[in-house]
Amino acid sequence: MIEELMIEFARRTGLSPATEQPRRYLWTDAFAVCNFLGLHDQTGERKYLDLALALVDQVHHTLGRHRPDDARKGWISGLGEAEGEHHPTIGGLRIGKKMNERAPGDPFDEALEWKRDGQYFHYLTKWMHALNRLSRVTGDPTYNRWAVEMARAVHARFTYLPPSGGPRRMYWKMSIDLSRPLVPSMGQHDPLDGYITYNQLQLCLPEGETDPAAVDLGNEIRELAEICRDRNWATDDALGIGGLLTDGWKLAQMMIQCGFNQPGLLTTIVDSAAAGLHAFVLTEPLRLPAPYRLPFREFGLAIGLRAMERLHRSTCQQPEQYESHGRLPEVVGRLRGYQSLAGEIEAFWLDPLNREAATWKEHLDINAVMLATSLAPDGFLSL
């Protein structure tokens, strides 16, 4: 089933066989890279690693360049052709929306903004994670260095000090060339996503990396730590809860494998996710029929619950690693009561009748790829 979902995704979006104008979307493609790496690990087949490598190259040459319907041409970073090939992510990457971004001076339209191109920080961090995973699988530091270059570039544009004073903040959405904010409000989990991902890029290195200065994100990490200070991460949104749970397992792996040392943060994140999950379940959203549900958001929660399965197993098998984490094992144990939700979500959307709903068909690529991630999550969840 998983191989079928991913091979069909590759065919449908112009990855394999490759087409001149492939359909690339950054969030979906980040999960897809990790899924192909997972399939490579599970099957030992080289074709899945080749698909991951081809997808990274196609994303950079599609979303790292201006749109075909844009008067601007070339790399969105402004680099020349040859230099852009060596630094394809240094200008960030487009979201991949169907409509071009809002032009300077055009009025803001909230409904249209969801359909317009630009750059989202939380999509960029997903791509950084995918590049780090690819780098660690192949041993080639190039991919992780591209992720670090992107982190430095987008951090400088997404974060800012308000002119009126006060703590540093972040924009939700930036223009394609990172020259202006398109949505000035701050995403609830964007600073946390960045903080964890930057540490991952700096600490969880491929075997071939020999230059610590090439992956130094110390200044960026300090600035995001400032934004994260005393913030409330709790949410009752399925995708947001799933992201917190996934971050929790990522942090646990980083502490055991990569030397990350902030035990209080892991407990805070898991505690926030537990509170949000309790609120989510009380509203009974999984009882609604398919036309009133968004599969990819539910799969985000299911993936997070799969991450918690792994964290619970780790706390039981390696209790000495969590001695400084206070009540973490207790909170993780409580979350076990929600584990069945992951299977319920997957079974609902594996039913062909439910996949006839517009909510499945209109977001087919992201739904299919995240279903594959939920069914076989280690490609995405493992560091």
Rank of each mutant, 00 (worst) to 15 (best):
E45K: 15
R336E: 13
P184R: 12
P285H: 12
Y195A: 02
V59Y: 00
F348K: 14
A358G: 12
A10S: 14
G240A: 08
E220W: 04
P206G: 12
L244R: 03
K361Y: 07
F380N: 02
A307T: 06
D230P: 01
M99P: 00
T138H: 07
G218P: 05
E101Y: 04
Q321K: 14
V137C: 08
L203A: 04
V331Y: 03
T142C: 05
A357D: 14
L294Y: 15
R334Q: 11
T246S: 12
R287H: 09
E110W: 10
T359R: 14
A82W: 11
G326W: 09
A275P: 01
D117V: 15
G242S: 06
Q200G: 02
R334W: 03
R169W: 05
G242Q: 04
G80C: 09
G84E: 06
H61W: 10
N100Q: 11
R297Q: 10
E223G: 10
V215G: 13
E298A: 10
V148W: 10
S164V: 15
L305Y: 02
Q321C: 15
L15K: 00
E83T: 10
E207R: 10
T267M: 01
P212K: 07
R306T: 08
D109T: 06
G264F: 05
S324W: 08
F36N: 01
A214W: 03
A274W: 03
D41E: 14
A71V: 12
A279L: 11
E113M: 10
S272Y: 02
L350G: 13
A342S: 15
D41M: 06
L37Y: 08
E356K: 15
L286N: 07
C258R: 08
D193W: 07
F380C: 03
G14W: 08
R355V: 02
Q253I: 06
E362K: 12
G84P: 06
H86T: 05
R231T: 15
P329Q: 07
Q339T: 15
T267Y: 02
R133L: 03
D236M: 05
E110I: 04
S272V: 04
K115Y: 13
F31S: 04
C34A: 14
L224S: 04
R116H: 15
E346R: 12
R180F: 03
G118I: 15
V369F: 07
G208R: 13
W75V: 02
E45G: 08
I196S: 00
D106M: 13
E356P: 01
S185H: 11
V331D: 03
D106Y: 11
V332K: 00
S77I: 01
L192D: 06
A342H: 04
G240W: 02
Y160D: 04
A368C: 10
L245A: 04
A214M: 05
R293S: 05
E309Y: 05
R306I: 09
F380P: 00
T235G: 02
G74Y: 08
A357E: 14
Y198R: 03
G243L: 09
E85T: 13
M186T: 06
R12D: 13
L277Q: 00
M254H: 12
E356V: 04
A71Y: 02
E81H: 09
N35A: 06
N367C: 11
E346G: 03
D69N: 13
R310E: 09
